[in-house]
Write a protein that binds this DNA or RNA. Structure first.
Lengths: 191, 191
DNA sequence: TATGATTAGTCATGAATCTGACTATCTCCG
DNA sequence: CGGAGATAGTCAGATTCATGACTAATCATA
C-alpha cells in the first residue's frame, strides 16, 4: 500500500485537517498521488490507530469542528524507511492509451474526440500546476529557491507534474493530427 | 475494469496465445498497460466465459499445447464502446514521487539513490521501446508508415511510452543534480 | 542423464482501490 | 426564509489488482 505513505508524505511540512488532505488528493493539488476523500479519511483512521499520525481536535465557531493530523515519531520513521526502499517505475495504466491502441479496429472519430478532450483536461491541470509552482516559488527565482528552501519536495514533484501534463498535451496534439491526416474511412482495415 | 479492455485491445491485430499476451503485459512490450501473467490469464478466462473472446486449441509437438485467443463480434463491439466512452486523465501514482515529496524530512541520500536507480530503469525501458518502434516502422520513414499502415495504434502508443521514459530520465537527472547541489547536512530541517 | 531455462498455464488468497449513499454545520445570496 | 454551496466527515460493499505457490511439458547443455 502506498496511499499510506503518500498521506504521510503530505504531512511532511506540518499538520493538516482530513478535509484539506482529502481535497489535495482529490483535485490533484497533490500532484504525486491521487485518491478519493473516503480513501484518505479511511487511511487517516488506520494511521492513527497504528500510531503513525496523531490527531488534534480543533473546535471552530464559524465552521464544523475538524481534526488536525500530524506525523508521530513512528510515522516519520515509517516514511523514512519507505523513502529509502527501492522503487519500481510506475506501472503504466491509461485508458486513453487503450482506446488509441484499438484505433485500427474501431471508429477513429470518437477516439479523436477523446484525445482532444484529454488534451484539454491536461491543459487545465497544467495551468493548475503552474499556478502551484508560482505559489511555491513565491517570487524567488529557481536557483535562489533551491538554495534556500526547506520545502524542496513539493517543488520537485510539481515539476514532474508540469512536465507530464505538457507532454500529454503535445502527444495528444500529435495523435490528433495523425488521425485527422488519414483517409476518412472507417477502421476495420484488418478484418 | 480496464484490464479487460486492454486485453481486448491487445487482440486487435489478430489472435494470440495467453502466454504471449501475458508476456506482453508483463514486460511492458504492451506499453499501454501493465499486468501480471496471472491477471491476464484470469481475465482471458472471464472474457471467454462472457463471449468477448474465443479460444482455439493448438496442439504442438515441440512445445506444450496452447490456446489462441481472438476477438468475437461481441468483444469488438465492447471495445468499440469502450474506445468511444469519455476518458479521464490517468490518476498519477508513483512511489518515487512520494519519496521525493518527503525529501525534506528524510535522509536525502537514499532518495537520491532511488532517483538514479529509476533513471537507469527508465533508460532500459526507453531502449526497449525504441527497439519496438524500429520494429514497427520496419525501415519505412514515419510519414510513409503513417500513410500506409493498418497498425497505427501500436505506433501511437509506443511514441507515448518513449516520450514518457525520456521525460522520466530527464526529470530524474535534474532532481539528482538539485539534491547533490544542496548542503550535505541531513534532512529534518523543518522540525 | 541430471539441471536449468522456456513454454504454457492454474489456484487460492490477500491487499488496494473505487463507488454510492449518508449525516451534519455554517455561510452567503436573493 | 429558503436553497445552494462549502466545510467536515462516515459507512458498507464491490471491484480491481497483486502475490505466492503450484503443475507439466519440452529444449539446450554440460
Amino acid at each position: 500500500m502506498a496511499l499510506r505513505h503518500a498521506v504521510l508524505a503530505a504531512l511532511v511540512h506540518g499538520e493538516a485537517s482530513g478535509y484539506e488532505l482529502a481535497k489535495r488528493f482529490e483535485a490533484g493539488v497533490a500532484n504525486f498521488w491521487h485518491a478519493k476523500p473516503q480513501q484518505v479519511y479511511a487511511e487517516l483512521t488506520k494511521l492513527r490507530e497504528s500510531g503513525m499520525v496523531q490527531a488534534r481536535e480543533v473546535i471552530q465557531q464559524s465552521r464544523p469542528n475538524k481534526r488536525l493530523f500530524s506525523l508521530t515519531e513512528d510515522g516519520a520513521a515509517m516514511l523514512e524507511k519507505f523513502a529509502a526502499a527501492p522503487k519500481e517505475l510506475p506501472t503504466g495504466r491509461d485508458d486513453l492509451m487503450v482506446a488509441v491502441q484499438a484505433v485500427d479496429l474501431v471508429d477513429p472519430a470518437p477516439v479523436l474526440e477523446n484525445v482532444e478532450r484529454c488534451a484539454e483536461l491536461a491543459r487545465q491541470k497544467l495551468a493548475a500546476f503552474e499556478e502551484l509552482e508560482q505559489q511555491i516559488l513565491g517570487g524567488r527565482d529557481e536557483a535562489t529557491f533551491i538554495r534556500t528552501t526547506h520545502h524542496l519536495g513539493p517543488y520537485l514533484t510539481v515539476q514532474r507534474g508540469i512536465r507530464f501534463q505538457r507532454d500529454t498535451v503535445e502527444w495528444c496534439a500529435w495523435v490528433a493530427e495523425v488521425l485527422r491526416s488519414r483517409p476518412e474511412g472507417r477502421g476495420r482495415r484488418n478484418q
